[in-house]
Computed example of a mutant assay.
Amino acid sequence: MGIVLYAPALALEALTGINQVTAILSVGLVCTFYSTIGGMKAVLMTDVFQSLLMFAAVFSVIICAVVDKGSLSEIWRIAEEGHRTDLLNFDPDPTVRHSWFTLIIGGGVTFLSLYAVNQTQVQRYLTVKDLKTAQKALWLNWPILTALSLSTSFSGLAIYSRYVKCDPYDAKYINSFDQVSQLLSNNQTIF
């Protein structure tokens, strides 16, 4: 749960200049307060609000890219040229980054850990009236999560279409891929 407080504290620090410890304590106190006052219903409503914000953010990235590039097909064309759309990779080699085999096995383990044994998810299941309702909620989650996964994947392609020519390695700003963090820590502008 520490990362749940740390990530927004980093954003608050970067945007407002608030001290990190103060930001962590503030976020923690606000969340504790609304959870105490509103209970599990407040937590679930916050989850719904957060989900809507995630969809809005992802679609705003896609819309901005479409406006910039002119069409969805142009974004897809750029991604194809960059070899980012290899959808039919059935290589059983477990060291291959994204193949059907690695995605099904790795995704299966990941989603089982998130939806079968994750403490916060099980807590959500226990807040509904019976097992049948919990199962319905889980089945309803599947198409929503699929839509989010597909849209975030396409937003990645949209971002790629914007920065396809901004490779610091190809531009000889760095000699090794490990140097990107060093480049960023020196505040060098490469884009």
Rank of each mutant, 00 (worst) to 15 (best):
G108R: 15
S149I: 08
I159E: 02
P92F: 03
T133S: 11
S99D: 03
V117P: 06
S153D: 01
V67F: 05
S113F: 02
H83E: 09
K136A: 01
Q50V: 11
C166N: 12
D86F: 09
A158H: 00
N175W: 06
F101E: 05
I174D: 07
A137P: 00
K69S: 14
L145K: 15
I159K: 00
I75R: 06
G106K: 15
V128N: 11
I63V: 10
D170F: 13
Q50N: 08
L148V: 11
F154Y: 03
W139V: 11
F111I: 12
G107D: 04
R124V: 01
Y173I: 03
A57K: 11
I104T: 15
A116F: 09
G108M: 08
L145C: 03
C166G: 03
C166V: 05
I78Y: 03
L103D: 05
Q121G: 04
T102P: 08
K165T: 04
L88H: 07
T85M: 08
W76A: 05
A134F: 08
D130N: 14
S155L: 01
G82W: 01
I104E: 07
V164D: 08
G82H: 09
G107R: 15
G82Q: 06
S153W: 05
L148D: 01
V58Y: 00
Q135G: 06
S73P: 00
F154I: 08
T85L: 12
L87F: 15
M54I: 10
G70R: 14
P94Q: 06
A134C: 09
L140T: 12
Y115K: 08
Q50M: 09
L114D: 10
I104S: 15
N141K: 14
R77E: 07
Y163W: 06
Q119L: 04
L103R: 03
S155C: 04
L157F: 01
S73A: 08
G107N: 11
L148T: 07
I63T: 09
F154L: 01
E74C: 02
T127F: 10
N89Q: 09
A171T: 14
R77D: 00
K172H: 07
S155I: 00
R97T: 14
